[in-house]
Amino acid sequence: MTAAAEGSPAFGMTRARRNALLRSEPVQGFALISPTFLYALILLVLPILVVIAHSFWTQNYLTIDRTFTLENYRIALTEPIYRDLLWRSLYISLTVSLFTVVLAYPIAYFISFHGGRHKSLWLFLITIPFWTSYLLRVMSWKVILGYNGVLNSGLMGLGVIDEPSTALLYNSTAVIITLTHAWAAFAILPIFVSLEKVDRTLVEAAKDLGDGPIRSFLRVTLPLSAPGVISAALIVMIPTVGDYVTPKLVGGKDGVMIANAIQAQFGKASNWPLGAALSVTTMLIVTLIAGATVLILRAAQRLAR
Protein backbone atom coordinates (compact mmCIF):
# COMPACT_ATOMS: atom_id res chain seq x y z
CA MET A 1 0.00 0.00 0.00
CA THR A 2 2.70 2.39 1.09
CA ALA A 3 4.84 1.38 -1.87
CA ALA A 4 2.00 1.91 -4.29
CA ALA A 5 1.22 5.33 -2.91
CA GLU A 6 4.89 6.31 -3.04
CA GLY A 7 5.19 4.86 -6.50
CA SER A 8 2.51 7.10 -8.07
CA PRO A 9 2.87 10.59 -6.67
CA ALA A 10 1.52 12.12 -9.91
CA PHE A 11 -1.70 10.14 -9.64
CA GLY A 12 -2.18 11.26 -6.03
CA MET A 13 -1.72 14.87 -7.02
CA THR A 14 -4.26 14.87 -9.86
CA ARG A 15 -6.76 13.25 -7.57
CA ALA A 16 -6.15 15.92 -4.95
CA ARG A 17 -6.59 18.59 -7.60
CA ARG A 18 -9.77 16.99 -8.87
CA ASN A 19 -11.16 16.80 -5.33
CA ALA A 20 -10.33 20.46 -4.75
CA LEU A 21 -12.09 21.31 -8.01
CA LEU A 22 -15.19 19.34 -6.98
CA ARG A 23 -15.19 21.00 -3.60
CA SER A 24 -14.94 24.53 -4.98
CA GLU A 25 -18.11 26.55 -4.63
CA PRO A 26 -18.60 27.66 -8.26
CA VAL A 27 -18.31 24.10 -9.53
CA GLN A 28 -20.73 22.81 -6.92
CA GLY A 29 -23.10 25.64 -7.79
CA PHE A 30 -23.04 24.84 -11.52
CA ALA A 31 -23.52 21.17 -10.76
CA LEU A 32 -26.57 21.95 -8.69
CA ILE A 33 -28.27 24.14 -11.28
CA SER A 34 -27.23 22.02 -14.28
CA PRO A 35 -30.64 20.26 -14.77
CA THR A 36 -32.54 23.54 -14.86
CA PHE A 37 -29.74 25.19 -16.77
CA LEU A 38 -29.88 22.51 -19.49
CA TYR A 39 -33.66 22.77 -19.57
CA ALA A 40 -33.48 26.54 -20.07
CA LEU A 41 -30.75 26.15 -22.66
CA ILE A 42 -32.69 23.65 -24.77
CA LEU A 43 -36.14 25.21 -24.47
CA LEU A 44 -35.32 28.93 -24.35
CA VAL A 45 -31.91 29.75 -25.74
CA LEU A 46 -31.83 27.25 -28.64
CA PRO A 47 -35.22 28.25 -30.14
CA ILE A 48 -34.23 31.91 -29.99
CA LEU A 49 -30.94 31.09 -31.72
CA VAL A 50 -32.85 29.17 -34.42
CA VAL A 51 -35.19 32.15 -34.94
CA ILE A 52 -32.27 34.61 -35.09
CA ALA A 53 -30.46 32.38 -37.58
CA HIS A 54 -33.54 32.11 -39.81
CA SER A 55 -33.97 35.87 -39.83
CA PHE A 56 -30.71 36.19 -41.81
CA TRP A 57 -31.66 33.55 -44.42
CA THR A 58 -33.97 33.53 -47.47
CA GLN A 59 -36.96 31.34 -48.33
CA ASN A 60 -36.84 29.78 -51.82
CA TYR A 61 -40.24 28.10 -52.15
CA LEU A 62 -39.66 24.89 -50.24
CA THR A 63 -35.98 25.29 -49.47
CA ILE A 64 -34.10 27.79 -47.38
CA ASP A 65 -31.14 29.65 -48.82
CA ARG A 66 -28.61 29.91 -46.01
CA THR A 67 -26.56 32.82 -47.39
CA PHE A 68 -26.42 35.79 -45.03
CA THR A 69 -28.80 38.65 -45.91
CA LEU A 70 -30.39 41.65 -44.20
CA GLU A 71 -33.24 41.75 -46.74
CA ASN A 72 -35.80 40.39 -44.22
CA TYR A 73 -35.00 43.21 -41.78
CA ARG A 74 -35.28 45.76 -44.59
CA ILE A 75 -38.80 44.48 -45.34
CA ALA A 76 -39.75 44.28 -41.63
CA LEU A 77 -38.68 47.85 -40.96
CA THR A 78 -39.71 49.61 -44.17
CA GLU A 79 -42.85 47.84 -45.46
CA PRO A 80 -45.74 50.11 -44.30
CA ILE A 81 -47.93 47.17 -43.31
CA TYR A 82 -45.42 45.75 -40.83
CA ARG A 83 -44.55 49.17 -39.49
CA ASP A 84 -48.23 49.93 -38.91
CA LEU A 85 -48.82 46.58 -37.27
CA LEU A 86 -45.84 47.09 -34.99
CA TRP A 87 -47.01 50.57 -34.00
CA ARG A 88 -50.52 49.29 -33.37
CA SER A 89 -49.17 46.44 -31.23
CA LEU A 90 -47.11 48.85 -29.18
CA TYR A 91 -50.05 51.27 -28.88
CA ILE A 92 -52.38 48.47 -27.76
CA SER A 93 -49.96 46.97 -25.27
CA LEU A 94 -49.01 50.31 -23.72
CA THR A 95 -52.68 51.32 -23.45
CA VAL A 96 -53.54 47.95 -21.96
CA SER A 97 -50.76 48.18 -19.38
CA LEU A 98 -51.80 51.71 -18.45
CA PHE A 99 -55.46 50.75 -18.00
CA THR A 100 -54.60 47.53 -16.22
CA VAL A 101 -52.34 49.26 -13.72
CA VAL A 102 -54.84 52.09 -13.13
CA LEU A 103 -57.65 49.59 -12.55
CA ALA A 104 -55.53 47.12 -10.58
CA TYR A 105 -54.08 49.67 -8.15
CA PRO A 106 -57.32 50.43 -6.27
CA ILE A 107 -58.07 46.72 -5.98
CA ALA A 108 -54.58 45.95 -4.65
CA TYR A 109 -54.83 48.96 -2.32
CA PHE A 110 -58.17 47.82 -0.97
CA ILE A 111 -56.95 44.28 -0.30
CA SER A 112 -53.71 45.45 1.30
CA PHE A 113 -55.10 48.25 3.46
CA HIS A 114 -58.65 47.13 4.14
CA GLY A 115 -58.49 43.36 3.54
CA GLY A 116 -58.08 42.70 7.25
CA ARG A 117 -58.05 39.02 8.05
CA HIS A 118 -59.46 38.10 4.65
CA LYS A 119 -56.50 39.15 2.49
CA SER A 120 -55.77 35.65 1.24
CA LEU A 121 -59.47 35.06 0.54
CA TRP A 122 -59.59 38.19 -1.60
CA LEU A 123 -56.47 37.15 -3.53
CA PHE A 124 -57.95 33.71 -3.99
CA LEU A 125 -61.19 35.17 -5.39
CA ILE A 126 -59.19 37.21 -7.88
CA THR A 127 -57.69 34.06 -9.36
CA ILE A 128 -61.10 32.45 -9.99
CA PRO A 129 -61.37 33.62 -13.65
CA PHE A 130 -58.10 31.79 -14.27
CA TRP A 131 -59.70 28.47 -13.50
CA THR A 132 -61.15 28.47 -17.03
CA SER A 133 -59.18 28.56 -20.24
CA TYR A 134 -57.96 31.84 -21.66
CA LEU A 135 -59.88 31.12 -24.86
CA LEU A 136 -63.14 30.83 -22.96
CA ARG A 137 -62.54 34.19 -21.32
CA VAL A 138 -61.86 35.84 -24.68
CA MET A 139 -64.92 34.18 -26.17
CA SER A 140 -67.08 35.46 -23.32
CA TRP A 141 -66.03 39.01 -24.23
CA LYS A 142 -67.32 38.24 -27.73
CA VAL A 143 -70.65 37.41 -26.10
CA ILE A 144 -70.62 40.66 -24.17
CA LEU A 145 -69.45 42.99 -26.96
CA GLY A 146 -71.08 41.28 -29.95
CA TYR A 147 -73.83 42.62 -32.28
CA ASN A 148 -76.52 40.75 -30.35
CA GLY A 149 -74.37 40.76 -27.24
CA VAL A 150 -75.11 41.52 -23.60
CA LEU A 151 -73.90 45.11 -23.80
CA ASN A 152 -75.85 46.00 -26.93
CA SER A 153 -79.13 44.48 -25.74
CA GLY A 154 -78.61 46.06 -22.32
CA LEU A 155 -78.05 49.53 -23.79
CA MET A 156 -81.02 49.08 -26.15
CA GLY A 157 -83.20 47.93 -23.29
CA LEU A 158 -82.28 51.08 -21.39
CA GLY A 159 -83.06 53.14 -24.47
CA VAL A 160 -79.55 54.55 -24.72
CA ILE A 161 -79.17 53.34 -28.31
CA ASP A 162 -81.77 52.45 -30.95
CA GLU A 163 -79.94 49.75 -32.88
CA PRO A 164 -77.04 47.48 -31.93
CA SER A 165 -73.67 49.20 -32.16
CA THR A 166 -71.00 47.57 -34.30
CA ALA A 167 -68.31 49.75 -32.78
CA LEU A 168 -67.87 47.44 -29.80
CA LEU A 169 -66.41 44.34 -31.38
CA TYR A 170 -63.79 43.62 -34.05
CA ASN A 171 -61.50 46.59 -33.55
CA SER A 172 -58.53 47.54 -31.39
CA THR A 173 -60.79 48.83 -28.58
CA ALA A 174 -62.23 45.33 -28.20
CA VAL A 175 -58.67 43.96 -28.02
CA ILE A 176 -57.76 46.53 -25.37
CA ILE A 177 -60.84 45.75 -23.25
CA THR A 178 -60.29 42.01 -23.45
CA LEU A 179 -56.57 42.19 -22.67
CA THR A 180 -57.10 44.63 -19.80
CA HIS A 181 -59.48 42.17 -18.19
CA ALA A 182 -57.29 39.16 -18.92
CA TRP A 183 -54.15 40.63 -17.36
CA ALA A 184 -55.76 42.27 -14.31
CA ALA A 185 -54.63 39.64 -11.82
CA PHE A 186 -51.03 39.83 -13.05
CA ALA A 187 -51.01 43.53 -12.27
CA ILE A 188 -52.86 43.25 -8.95
CA LEU A 189 -50.36 40.83 -7.42
CA PRO A 190 -47.10 42.82 -7.79
CA ILE A 191 -48.84 46.04 -6.72
CA PHE A 192 -50.33 44.23 -3.73
CA VAL A 193 -46.92 42.88 -2.72
CA SER A 194 -45.30 46.32 -2.86
CA LEU A 195 -48.20 47.88 -0.92
CA GLU A 196 -47.84 45.19 1.73
CA LYS A 197 -44.24 46.31 2.22
CA VAL A 198 -45.24 49.93 2.90
CA ASP A 199 -44.75 50.48 6.63
CA ARG A 200 -48.10 51.62 8.00
CA THR A 201 -46.47 53.88 10.57
CA LEU A 202 -45.09 55.94 7.66
CA VAL A 203 -48.66 56.69 6.61
CA GLU A 204 -49.45 57.58 10.21
CA ALA A 205 -46.38 59.82 10.35
CA ALA A 206 -47.57 61.64 7.21
CA LYS A 207 -50.96 62.14 8.82
CA ASP A 208 -49.31 63.30 12.04
CA LEU A 209 -47.36 65.89 10.05
CA GLY A 210 -50.56 67.35 8.64
CA ASP A 211 -51.38 65.38 5.51
CA GLY A 212 -54.95 64.36 4.81
CA PRO A 213 -55.69 60.95 3.27
CA ILE A 214 -55.13 62.04 -0.36
CA ARG A 215 -51.88 63.92 0.29
CA SER A 216 -50.42 61.16 2.43
CA PHE A 217 -51.27 58.69 -0.35
CA LEU A 218 -49.60 60.80 -3.03
CA ARG A 219 -46.54 61.65 -0.93
CA VAL A 220 -45.89 58.36 0.86
CA THR A 221 -47.91 55.34 -0.25
CA LEU A 222 -47.70 55.90 -4.01
CA PRO A 223 -43.93 56.60 -4.22
CA LEU A 224 -43.18 53.65 -1.95
CA SER A 225 -45.31 51.30 -4.04
CA ALA A 226 -43.79 52.52 -7.32
CA PRO A 227 -41.62 49.38 -7.76
CA GLY A 228 -44.78 47.26 -7.81
CA VAL A 229 -46.44 49.59 -10.31
CA ILE A 230 -43.40 49.40 -12.61
CA SER A 231 -43.22 45.62 -12.49
CA ALA A 232 -46.99 45.37 -13.03
CA ALA A 233 -46.74 47.61 -16.11
CA LEU A 234 -43.85 45.56 -17.52
CA ILE A 235 -45.48 42.23 -16.73
CA VAL A 236 -48.54 43.33 -18.72
CA MET A 237 -46.76 45.19 -21.51
CA ILE A 238 -44.15 42.62 -22.52
CA PRO A 239 -46.44 39.67 -23.29
CA THR A 240 -49.33 41.72 -24.72
CA VAL A 241 -47.19 43.16 -27.53
CA GLY A 242 -46.93 39.68 -28.95
CA ASP A 243 -50.45 38.53 -28.15
CA TYR A 244 -51.97 36.57 -31.00
CA VAL A 245 -55.18 34.86 -29.85
CA THR A 246 -57.03 37.95 -28.63
CA PRO A 247 -56.70 40.05 -31.81
CA LYS A 248 -57.54 36.96 -33.86
CA LEU A 249 -60.79 36.39 -31.94
CA VAL A 250 -62.06 39.90 -31.10
CA GLY A 251 -59.83 42.20 -33.15
CA GLY A 252 -61.39 41.86 -36.59
CA LYS A 253 -59.39 43.43 -39.39
CA ASP A 254 -58.76 46.69 -37.48
CA GLY A 255 -57.38 44.90 -34.48
CA VAL A 256 -54.73 42.78 -36.19
CA MET A 257 -51.42 42.89 -34.33
CA ILE A 258 -47.83 42.04 -35.25
CA ALA A 259 -48.11 38.52 -33.84
CA ASN A 260 -50.85 37.73 -36.35
CA ALA A 261 -48.53 38.76 -39.17
CA ILE A 262 -45.72 36.65 -37.73
CA GLN A 263 -48.08 33.68 -37.47
CA ALA A 264 -49.09 34.21 -41.13
CA GLN A 265 -45.45 34.19 -42.25
CA PHE A 266 -44.75 30.93 -40.43
CA GLY A 267 -48.09 29.48 -41.62
CA LYS A 268 -49.96 30.35 -44.81
CA ALA A 269 -47.35 32.66 -46.34
CA SER A 270 -44.67 30.13 -45.55
CA ASN A 271 -41.86 32.67 -45.30
CA TRP A 272 -40.05 31.63 -42.13
CA PRO A 273 -37.13 34.04 -42.52
CA LEU A 274 -39.42 37.07 -42.73
CA GLY A 275 -41.46 35.80 -39.78
CA ALA A 276 -38.23 35.33 -37.86
CA ALA A 277 -37.05 38.85 -38.72
CA LEU A 278 -40.38 40.29 -37.57
CA SER A 279 -40.11 38.33 -34.31
CA VAL A 280 -36.56 39.49 -33.62
CA THR A 281 -37.48 43.11 -34.40
CA THR A 282 -40.47 42.97 -32.04
CA MET A 283 -38.34 41.35 -29.36
CA LEU A 284 -35.68 44.04 -29.65
CA ILE A 285 -38.20 46.88 -29.54
CA VAL A 286 -39.93 45.42 -26.47
CA THR A 287 -36.56 44.99 -24.77
CA LEU A 288 -35.65 48.58 -25.55
CA ILE A 289 -38.97 49.94 -24.28
CA ALA A 290 -38.81 47.86 -21.09
CA GLY A 291 -35.22 48.91 -20.47
CA ALA A 292 -36.02 52.55 -21.16
CA THR A 293 -39.06 52.43 -18.84
CA VAL A 294 -36.93 51.13 -15.99
CA LEU A 295 -34.19 53.71 -16.61
CA ILE A 296 -36.61 56.63 -16.94
CA LEU A 297 -38.49 55.69 -13.79
CA ARG A 298 -35.25 55.25 -11.87
CA ALA A 299 -34.10 58.69 -12.98
CA ALA A 300 -37.50 60.14 -12.08
CA GLN A 301 -37.24 58.60 -8.63
CA ARG A 302 -33.80 60.12 -8.17
CA LEU A 303 -35.08 63.51 -9.33
CA ALA A 304 -38.08 63.31 -7.00
CA ARG A 305 -35.65 63.15 -4.10
Binding site: T201, E204, K207, D208, G212, R305
Partner: peptide, 25 residues
Protein backbone atom coordinates in the same frame (compact mmCIF):
# COMPACT_ATOMS: atom_id res chain seq x y z
CA UNK B 1 -60.57 66.18 14.97
CA UNK B 2 -58.36 63.94 12.80
CA UNK B 3 -54.66 63.47 13.56
CA UNK B 4 -53.57 65.80 10.75
CA UNK B 5 -55.39 68.76 12.29
CA UNK B 6 -54.28 68.34 15.90
CA UNK B 7 -51.68 70.60 17.50
CA UNK B 8 -49.63 67.54 18.43
CA UNK B 9 -46.72 65.81 16.75
CA UNK B 10 -45.32 62.41 17.40
CA UNK B 11 -41.95 60.68 17.52
CA UNK B 12 -42.72 57.09 16.61
CA UNK B 13 -41.13 54.09 18.27
CA UNK B 14 -39.82 52.88 14.90
CA UNK B 15 -39.02 56.56 14.04
CA UNK B 16 -41.02 56.18 10.77
CA UNK B 17 -38.42 58.02 8.70
CA UNK B 18 -39.59 58.25 5.07
CA UNK B 19 -37.15 55.98 3.22
CA UNK B 20 -37.64 57.71 -0.15
CA UNK B 21 -36.62 61.13 1.19
CA UNK B 22 -33.38 62.52 2.54
CA UNK B 23 -32.93 64.04 6.00
CA UNK B 24 -33.82 67.58 4.91
CA UNK B 25 -36.93 66.45 3.04
Amino acid sequence: IPANRRPTNMVFQSYAIFPHLNVEQ
